[in-house]
């Protein structure tokens, strides 16, 4: 009994220690922003690796999600004779919720896991220690450009996801189910508000970008330097990111759209 209590206490202390280290790490990433700006080519390289290489999965997923929204939305709206509001429904669903959330989940699976594995393996193969011994700060040189590339990429990818999703909804609603194309776009125009809907969606995607990329780079940097340790860290990145995104989405939605 005593041993179990002891183990519980120990795991609690370790978890709090880890959380503390994570926040100090986050502060170091924020402080490294001037270095990232000065060394812009490093950021560009990472924007390509993190952002551009995630484009395809975001594009294809956005198209299919938009097409499904078009189908499901039509089936519901047609019962009320409101099928011409399909464009509004698809657009609001995407810019407010599905765009930022699904992009963040896909980003965690595609780019987040890759970031964790890359940094974790660099640690396991002593590349980070080697840099430290060459008087090069690995947080500024390796981690910070990846972090800021993730933060910048996420809202852009979410915007692409939403835009392609709307096109997917259009293809199904107008092209397949015969809704009037003019009604699809014209109803969307006045009902989707720039600050209320689009800006809030952008804020969400920035928050998700910070959280997901922070989790990914920290898990890599803090990974046990073994193959098993890197594997566990990669799994934790995906699981923790998904939970954090869904939890934060509820909080942000309540703050932004709650009465």
């Amino acid at each position: 009994m005593f041993n179990k209590l002891q183990a519980l206490g120990r795991s609690g202390i370790l978890a709090i220690e880890r959380l503390g280290r994570g926040h100090i790490f986050f502060w170091q990433l924020l402080k490294a922003l001037p270095t990232v700006i000065v060394r812009f080519p490093l950021l560009i390289q990472q924007l390509f690796a993190v952002g551009v290489l995630s484009f395809l999965i975001i594009f294809v997923s956005g198209l299919f999600v938009g097409m499904v929204l078009g189908l499901q939305g039509y089936n519901t709206l047609v019962d009320f004779g409101a099928e011409e509001s399909l464009g509004v429904m698809v657009a609001l669903s995407l810019v407010r919720e599905l765009g930022p959330v699904v992009t963040a989940l896909l980003f965690a699976g595609r780019a987040g896991s890759a970031l964790t594995a890359e940094i974790g393996l660099m640690k396991a193969t002593e590349q980070l220690s080697g840099m430290e011994m060459m008087a090069v700060d690995p947080i500024k040189r390796i981690v910070a450009p990846r972090f800021w590339a993730g933060v910048i990429s996420m809202p852009l990818l979410a915007a692409i996801f939403s835009a392609i999703g709307v096109v997917g909804g259009y293809l199904v609603g107008v092209g397949l189910l015969g809704i009037d194309g003019g009604a699809f776009w014209s109803q969307m125009q006045p009902r989707v508000d720039l600050s209320e809907d689009i800006l809030n969606g952008v804020i969400k995607s920035v928050v998700f970008g910070v959280v997901v990329t922070w989790i990914a780079v920290y898990e890599g940097y803090d990974a046990t330097p073994t193959s098993e340790g890197v594997s566990r860290a990669t799994t934790r990145t995906v699981v923790h990111s998904a939970l954090a995104v869904l939890g934060l989405d509820f909080i942000l939605t309540a703050l932004m759209f709650g009465e």
């Binding site: 660099m122 193969t125 002593e126 590349q127 220690s129 080697g130 840099m131 430290e132 011994m133 060459m134 008087a135 090069v136 040189r141």
Partner: peptide, 30 residues
């Protein structure tokens, strides 16, 4: 540390850079 060199057991070469870029790395950084 700029005046100390260290040779790690694994070599600790940066795997995304060529031999030339690895050796040039400290010069470019400092």
């Amino acid at each position: 540390r700029k005046r100390m060199g260290m040779l790690f057991q694994s070599g600790a070469l940066l795997t995304d850079m060529s031999v030339y870029d690895n050796v040039a790395f400290p010069l470019r950084e400092h």
